[in-house]
Every structure is written in structure tokens, then in C-alpha cells.
Design a protein around this nucleic acid. Structure first.
Lengths: 187, 187, 187, 187
DNA sequence: CATGAATGAGCGTTCATTCAT
DNA sequence: TATGAATGAACGCTCATTCAT
């Protein structure tokens, strides 16, 4: 017998992410995904039970990634300002480096009929824990994690989307944002 | 007959919004939309050139709505604090009152392959103008509008989605948010 | 709007019967049926809700036909012998004249997973009533209708299938059968 | 190892029969058969050249079985009445005992596109020979074997199918049938 | 011998759209 | 204007079969 070829599965994942980025969920049919991945449509069903399962599994795999990426950049001894700076800039860097994955996750999570059945992500839990630690250490003000999270990351996301390609504007906005967050969030 | 026509078109719009809320874009086929709206599939093509056109047109009509709603609640003589309070609470109220429209717009705008071809919305332009006015009047700090917008509204949206149904938590978070924004945004 | 074209529906029915006769249920796919009927696959679904529905509906339409055909040949004043002769020979004639329909019905009814959901046929009810009448009139012995039915018709069917094409053998067997049934069934 | 092979082949056969009984030919794909039999799809092709071959081979193996079963119940010294009684009742018993096999054979043989290529069964030949013997011995009337066969067995089959589960009706019908056949078939 | 992976072709069905009235 | 009929293309998925081990 042949071993399951994990390269094939990876090709399928990348094909899904690429096609959804280019043409939305609507443009990512099994046939197109298979063609892009260089496999037969039937092969997709060796690795995933259904298209929904496939999308969910891929989503759950990547939904966390950004948070682990960010937390990996954090150093225990960082000052408050450094922390804010790192959180903001590494989030921004992640969007740039993993653009396709980022957009896939965004689209997926904004579609209730898709993400409804997905388990709450581990990564989000971790970042909230991280916020709680900072509060205990007297670095972060006692603000609802949902607010902290949105102010930190959604804002970066908006800047990145609005000023796409405009390096100067983006950098200026990020710097202003960091300054603002330092004053707002830190004790 | 002018009346009847517009009634049919309105039925189609509402059908689109309802179906997309219930089942996502995937669940909103022309046939289903027509059935829901009580018209023939062919009738849809009297009012819209294609499905893409239809979605775009409906999106562009509603994408603005939230901003006009909010701006309608603003009074010229409000203090800075009142302004923040009103902006936050009326945005929250809009989500509740126009849940279906809100979700439709959200889903649509998070899908690049759909919203890419849509014109920049009038409403967003107006709210940015409004921010500029406040800055001129010395009420608002000189912060990038993209940041102001995101901090004000995305945060409310996140609170609303996270604490869905939990009235107490939602209200507490909104109050904390207002307090935080007053300090952060106002001069 | 266009009127539903009953000719198309008839073409579909005939295509189903033809294909199933030639290649069994296995060989009668929607695509082949549509091609044979000169319509688009999608058109089939205008006339039938699903393939199962289609087969069932066509079956229910034709399952009765043989009985109405036979009963149409019966005359009230016939003697017992004439009745047997007519029943046997008209059943045989029906198989020959409506060979395709006959085989379709046979195949369908012998497949439990298909015919399980079909309503008991009107035609079979009528023929049983006819047997009851003959018993009341003192023409037919008091034998279970299921037995009468099987002895009369299944036997003809077996003769026809076994001696296919062999006219002499078939006719001889039918005559012998009639003689035998006259003695066995009549008072 | 000879033993193991045959065990696998037997598992496959039983799986085919089970699945066809439960869901018809349509529900018996190679994948499902293999799963049910506890082997790999590829293994099926070690024992059979193709799916059609497999079905035909299994059919040919079991098509005879009922006749050998019946003939095994016959005793040389039986009276005419005993013979009829035994033939009818053992056919009925076979249907009950080997329900799955019986239905498989029934379905298969009623589908011309499947059974067309099957060789005439040995078992049927034997039973016809048996009838011929009885005629020579002056027990059975000189009636066409096709007629004898149908009257004897198809009738039992119809009774069994019609009165499924209704023990009293079934037994009464069988007794009436035996009485009728004694008069009709015996000299 | 036996396997699970792999496949192109085909399945039943629905799609967005157009046709004829 | 408005319709239900009609369609070719595409959908997600399963098929019988073969491949590589």
C-alpha cells in the first residue's frame, strides 16, 4: 500500500487558501482546488470527509497562527512600551508575511454559517491569558480583554487595509497608534 | 405602475439580506431569493443586470446606512463626552435594530472578491468629515481617522459579538469603552 | 411565460423506459435520460423533484396499465372458459405489445428498495375485485386471489420469457395452460 | 494459505448479499462491499476480475441453491401428495431461512442486463429432470415443465411476499395451494 | 496476497441566466 | 413588466478500478 502523501494534503491546503484569496469562497470549488493542487477531485476526499470539513479543518489550523506568531515575539523583560510596539508591529508584519492565510482566516471567521461550528481557538485564549498576566504585573490597565484585543489588533488591520501599499502613511499611522495605545492601555 | 415595481425590488432586497444572514452567500441562490421574494427568477433580472450587480447594489445601499443613522443622533451642541457616548451607543443600537442588514454588510465587506469593485461609500466619507470637524473645533485629538474609526466602532462590534445576549457584560464593557475613549480621543 | 411542454415529459418517460430496458437501472443516469429525451439534465428536474421521484411516478403510472388492458378485453357475458382464455391471451399480448413498459415495471417491482415506497396499485385492486365478482357469480372456485393471480399471470410471463421467439412452443404452452386453468379454477 | 483466502472471499460474498438486500444494487458499491467484508477494495479484485464478474459469479453460485435444497428434501418413495406438499413447503422454508440469498437472486434474475450473460443454471435443469422423472413414473401429468415450475414456486413466492408476517394467512394459503396443486398436477 | 492511496469519469443536482409568451 | 420553462455549465461527491508498496 501507499503511504498517505502529506505533500498532497499541503498542496490542497495551499490551493484552498490561494483560491479563496483570489476569488472568495464562491471561486473555490473542489474541482478548481484539485486542479490547483495537482490532484484528482476524488483525492481531496481521501484527506477530508467533505468540503465543509476541509474548510473548517484548515481554518482551525490557521486561525491560531497569528497569535502564536505574536506571542513568539514577546520577551518577558520587555517594558510596557516595548510590548505595545511589538504587539502592533508583529501583528502588522504577520499580515504582510502571511497575507493569504490572513485573508482566508478573516473571510472564514466573518461568515457565521461557516465559523459557527468551529471550536473557540486556542490562540485567542492564550492572548487573553497574556493580557491577564500583564494586568497582574501592573503593566496593563484593568480593561476588558475584548476591548484590549480589538484596539490593538483591529486597528492595525484597518490601517493595513486602508493604506495598502502606501508605506509612509502606514508607518506614520502605526507610530501614532503605538503612541496612543501606550497612553491608553498602560498604567 | 411605479409603486408595484419598487415593492418587488424591495422584496428582493429583503430576501437577499434574510437568506444571506441565515445561510451565508452560499445559501442565497437566485432561485431561492426569488422564491423568498415571491417573484420569478426572471424578474430579478429586470431590476438587476446580474447577481453580482445585485449584491453590489444592495451592499452599496446599506453600507452607508449605519453612518447616517449615527450622524443623525449627533447634536451640534454636544460636549465631547456626549459625542463619544452617542457614537458608541448608537452604533451598538444600530447593530441590534438592523441586525440582518448589519451582518449582510459585514460579510460582504470582508470578502475582497466582492467588495473590491464597490465604490468608496459616501457614509464613510461623511463620518471622516465629521471627525475632521471635531478636530477643527478642538474637541478631538489630531489622530488618524482610520484609527479613530476603528477604535470607536470595531470595538463596539467586538463587544457586541463576544457578549451576545449577555446584557450585563455588554453594558459594562460599553461603559468602560466610553470612559477609555473619552480619555484617549478627546482633548 | 412558457407552458410546460408535456411532450418533453413524455420524451423523458420514454427515455427512462428505453434505457432501463436496455441497460438496467444502472444504465439510466439522468444525463443519459436527458440526452435520449433531447432535453437538458436540468429540465428533468422541472418535471420531477428527484430521480427517485421520477422513477416512482413513472412506475405508478404504468404498473396498472396491464390490468386495465386486460379488464378492457373482458366481456360480461363471457363463459368461464372464454374468460380464462381472454385473461391469459391478453396478458400475453400485452407483454408483446408493451414490451418495454412491461420490463420496466417488472424490474422496478422486483427491487424492494425502489418499490417499497410505492402505493399499492389501483389496477391490482381492480383485478382482485374482478376475481371476487366471478366467485360470487359461481364461475370461479373460492381460491385465494393471490394464488389465482399468480397462476394466471406469472405462468404466462414465464412461458413468454422462456420460449422467447419460439412461436410454436409458446402457443402450445399457452393452450395447455388455458386447458389446465379451466379445470383448476372454474367451478 | 488456502484457508484464509476462502474466508475473505466468503466475507465478500456475504457482504454483497447483505448490502443488496438492504439497499439494492444501487447501494452495493465496491467500497461499501469491501468495508462490510473487512477487506480493501483492491482485495476484491484479487478474487474477481470486475464487479460485473463478481455479481455474476455469486449469482450463479446461489441461483441453484434453492433447487438443491428442495431436491434434498425429496424422498424417492413419497406419494404424489407428499411430493407436492414437500416441494411447496420446502420452497417456502427456503425463502424464510435464506431470505438474503433469495432476495439477491430474485433481484438479479429480474434484471435482464445482469442475468442475460449468465449460464443456464444447473439447478433448474435438475428440477426439470425431476419433473420428467415423475411424469415417467406416472405421478405427474404431462404438463410443460415451465408451467409446472411456475405454478409450484412462483405461487409460493407470491404468497410469501403478500402475506409477509401474517402467519395464519400464509399457512392457510399454502394449504389451499397444495390442495389445488394435488388436483391439478397429479394423475 | 493484500493493502490504502489515487484517479478520471460519471453521478444526481443546482447554478446563474435566457427564452418565449 | 413579469413570468415559469428551459438550459449548459458547474457543483460536491462517489464510482469502479489501478497503482505502488
Amino acid at each position: 500500500m501507499r503511504k498517505k502523501n502529506q505533500e498532497k494534503k499541503e498542496n490542497i491546503k495551499q490551493a484552498v487558501i490561494k483560491l479563496i484569496l483570489e476569488a472568495g469562497f464562491h471561486g473555490a470549488s473542489i474541482a478548481k482546488i484539485a486542479r490547483e493542487a495537482g490532484v484528482s477531485p476524488a483525492t481531496v476526499y481521501i484527506y477530508y470527509a467533505s468540503k465543509d470539513d476541509m474548510l473548517r479543518e484548515i481554518y482551525e489550523e490557521y486561525a491560531d497562527q497569528v497569535y502564536f506568531y505574536i506571542l513568539g515575539k514577546i520577551d518577558q523583560n520587555m517594558s510596557g512600551r516595548s510590548l505595545i510596539d511589538t504587539l502592533v508591529r508583529s501583528y502588522y508584519r504577520y499580515i504582510n508575511e502571511e497575507e493569504r492565510v490572513f485573508h482566508f482566516v478573516e473571510q472564514f471567521s466573518s461568515c457565521p454559517s461557516l465559523s459557527a461550528n468551529c471550536r473557540e481557538t486556542e490562540g485567542c485564549f492564550r492572548i487573553f491569558q497574556f493580557f491577564d498576566d500583564l494586568k497582574e504585573k501592573g503593566i496593563l490597565k484593568d480593561i476588558d480583554n475584548v476591548i484590549v484585543h480589538s484596539i490593538l489588533f483591529n486597528t492595525v488591520k484597518c490601517i493595513r487595509l486602508r493604506y495598502e501599499g502606501e508605506q509612509d502613511k502606514t508607518q506614520a499611522a502605526l507610530e501614532q497608534l503605538i503612541e496612543l495605545l501606550v497612553e491608553t492601555l498602560l498604567l
